[in-house]
């Protein structure tokens, strides 16, 4: 795709953003970026990892704390996997995420939002972030 951002270009954008200060590198074509997120002043600090390969979809993992432990016997909402915890932040095959977009300006803010609603869900059992489940009409446009 034209103007697709390379892992190196994404790395530069992540490194210069003030909302995902952390560290990481591009090794053998794969970007790994670790950073902390505190979605609101009342929230915990979460350690996140983004992995991204050219032409791939960015993966977002929550390294700590262990969200499954926080959730107790409940199943985490809107995740691709629970071990490790991998977040579903956007609709696949839509223009929400495209390869020419900056991870630091899309995936990262969405991770804040996910964690914000996660804490609300922990407290109330209600997911207020909306979204779609697999099988629902996922081609929004």
């Amino acid at each position: 795709m034209a103007n697709a951002l390379s892992p190196e270009q994404q790395w530069i954008r992540l490194k210069s953003s003030a909302i995902c200060r952390g560290h990481g590198l591009v090794h053998r074509g794969e970007l790994v970026w670790d950073f902390d997120v505190k979605p609101s002043p009342l929230s915990r600090t979460y350690r996140l990892r983004i992995r991204f390969k050219r032409f791939g979809l960015p993966d977002v993992f929550v390294l700590s704390p262990n969200l499954n432990e926080l959730a107790g016997d409940r199943c985490l909402p809107h995740v691709y996997s629970t071990s490790p915890v991998r977040l579903c932040l956007h609709l696949p095959k839509s223009d929400e995420w495209m390869m020419n977009k900056s991870i630091a300006e899309t995936i990262v803010p969405w991770a804040y939002l996910w964690l914000f609603y996660f804490e609300h869900w922990l407290a109330t059992d209600e997911w207020q972030g909306g979204g779609k489940h697999p099988g629902e009409d996922d081609a929004k446009k």
Binding site: A18, I19, H90, E96, T106, H133
Partner: peptide
């Protein structure tokens, strides 16, 4: 916003939130 997280007023170094749809079960 840096350090503050989600806010409704702009601050230095802040990033607007593009529309998204949480996916998955």
């Amino acid at each position: 916003a840096p350090a503050m997280g989600l806010v409704t007023a702009s601050a230095f170094g802040s990033v607007p939130l593009p529309k998204n749809t949480f996916f998955g079960r």
